[in-house]
């Protein structure tokens, strides 16, 4: 018997193609699982509008469930409520740091144009003496930083609120 709980478990095995240490559950991209007339509805939401990983995540969800004999599946993409880094789980934040990506810190409101950049600790040496190289990094959801102490260049999973 396939249950909602079982599907949530299986979703813990679907990884984000761009940050492969995170599952879609860690990331908060998976919003809801429900059953309508025998069809499993999986609701996901994009991190950024143009996130090229969404199609891949959709395919991976369908593939993962098919591996376990679940074929009646529909993946739905919703925009509201809009994804925020607050949905990134605690284990997700820990895994990011271990992987070398600084997790989002509580950040200033970006509408305050001239405010200081947030202090992002280095994921390698924990130094707070880091500087932003660019607001835009290797993917839409990351910024590029460098540690001024250990010199490590690193990605910062930037805050989206």
């Amino acid at each position: 018997m396939v249950t909602k709980e079982r599907i949530w478990e299986l979703m813990e095995e679907v990884f984000d193609p761009e940050v492969p240490v995170l599952t879609i559950v860690d990331l908060g991209v998976l919003r809801e699982i429900s059953e309508v007339d025998g069809t499993w509805m999986i609701t996901i939401t994009p991190t950024y509008s143009g996130c090229p990983a969404m199609k891949r995540i959709e395919d991976d969800i369908i593939e993962k469930l098919a591996e376990h004999g679940i074929h009646d599946v529909k993946v739905e993409n919703v925009l509201s409520p809009a994804w925020t880094t607050d949905w990134l789980s605690e284990p997700g934040r820990r895994k990011l740091k271990e992987y070398g990506i600084a997790p989002p810190v509580d950040e200033i409101d970006k509408s305050v144009l001239f405010a200081d950049q947030p202090i992002v600790p280095c994921p390698k040496c924990d130094s707070k003496n880091t500087k932003m190289i660019s607001q835009f990094g290797s993917t839409a959801c990351k910024a590029h930083y460098q540690c001024q102490d250990c010199q490590e260049p690193f990605d910062y999973f930037k805050c989206l609120k």
Partner: peptide, 24 residues
């Protein structure tokens, strides 16, 4: 319009970063 509001809510977060970048 609920869907237009949803698109705006999503896009606004990105646009804040764009504005910060271009203004700087």
């Amino acid at each position: 319009d609920v869907q237009l509001a949803a698109i705006a809510e999503k896009s606004l977060k990105e646009t804040k970063y764009h504005l910060k970048h271009s203004a700087e």
